[in-house]
Design a protein around this nucleic acid. Structure first.
Length: 316
RNA sequence: GCCGGGGUAGCUCAAUUGGUAGAGCAGGGGACUGAAAAUCCCCGUGUAGGCGGUUCAAUCCCGUCCCCCGGCA
């Protein structure tokens, strides 16, 4: 079993600071579990660890993707799994840090082994959804895969088209795939959450936006724009990125950009909290208690190591 | 000062030919299996700018005052 401490929480709550506090106590390598911090073009706007932070211990899976590259939960899980193996080889402790709930789930609990669906097929279903409407496709899904259709709302275009494309590409329904047994997890996990009440988090997010702007967020967006002028490119979908895109295109004022940016970030933080609060395994701490969080992780790592050693001795 | 247009939910605005009003966004809650910083669901009583009047009944009609936006002086 790989010992895998995790730090989760909404954006801006101080996950990076907590990770560095743990890194100061034992040799570990931070592995990103955030779907936007993977983009090379937006280190600042997506709040990737700054160079002076990243230099304190190895930081992996940050800023390695091109703006036009799409990352899926399945791909993330495979990449992260092999990255964790690499880290274990170096005798360091892998430390998973991020805010994308689905990525944590895909890696830690597994994800249905659905083969890759050709993008052309996926976009054909999206096209059909646009012309025929999601209700018609939901009705179709009802015939093909009633149990999944019952779970997905008739307006949820993204999930309906996904279920249909998987069915067409593989000949099996989406729920059939979901019912396939998953291999047992090879991780021993302890999750620690860092958060604050939304009202307090909002102030931090406001300040963070101002700081990002002072530190060249506009220039960062402008530079990205020269490389890719397509606002539908995956990298542009990050909050802050798309608002700055509109500002750079002179479609909105800087004031409007900041207002939207804060609003959207706040709403996103709330969605993250909804996801993580539903996970009863997370032990929560306020940012000011990060030393306690570190303390807890260290104790857990120590104990888990002892248990593992014991079971090795028993086997002998 | 005069002439228009307007004052309705936190914001932007509808509808009501007189029977006390509803969308989008924001906000609150929730879902989540390869787009997840995505996608989607549920939640709407608000002195209808103030005060009078007409009326069985006024957000709607009339008077008056206040405020905003244009135009004219």
């Amino acid at each position: 079993m790989v010992i895998l401490p995790c730090i989760v929480g909404p954006t801006g709550a101080g996950k990076t600071a907590a990770a560095l506090a743990l890194a100061a106590e034992l040799p570990c390598s931070v592995i990103n579990a955030d779907s936007r911090q993977v983009y090379r073009d937006f280190p600042r706007i997506t709040a990737q660890p700054a160079p002076d932070e990243a230099s304190q211990c190895p930081h992996l899976l940050y800023g390695y993707l091109d703006i036009e590259e799409k990352l899926s939960a399945g791909t993330y899980a495979r990449t992260a799994a092999s990255t964790i193996e690499d880290v274990v080889q170096t005798k360091r402790t892998p430390l998973l840090v991020g805010g994308t709930g689905l990525y944590f789930r895909a890696l830690l609990e597994g994800i249905a082994p659905i083969p890759h669906v050709p993008p052309s097929l996926a976009s054909a279903w999206q096209e059909r959804c646009n012309t025929e409407g999601s209700l018609a496709l939901h009705a179709l899904l009802q015939d093909i895969d009633p149990s999944y259709a019952a779970k997905v709302h008739p307006h949820d275009r993204q999930r309906i088209t996904r279920a249909l494309e998987v069915w067409q590409a593989t000949g099996k329904t989406f729920s059939w795939w979901h019912n396939q047994p998953l291999p047992p997890s090879s991780y021993s996990v302890q999750k620690v959450g860092i958060t604050l009440p939304l009202a307090e988090l909002e102030k931090i997010l406001q300040n963070r936006i101002d700081a990002m702007l002072e530190q060249g967020a506009v220039a960062e967006a402008q530079a990205a724009l020269t490389r890719c002028d397509d606002p539908t490119a995956p990298g542009w979908s990050g909050i802050g990125c798309r608002e700055l895109y509109l500002y750079c295109k002179k479609e909105i004022s800087l004031e409007a950009c900041k207002t939207l940016w804060l609003r959207n970030t706040r709403a996103y933080a709330k969605r993250q909290l909804t996801w993580f609060m539903a996970d009863s395994h997370i032990h929560w701490f306020a940012p000011r208690q990060k030393e306690e969080a570190v303390e807890m992780l260290l104790r857990w790592i120590q104990k888990t190591k002892e248990n593992t050693d014991e079971s090795i001795h028993t086997l002998k």
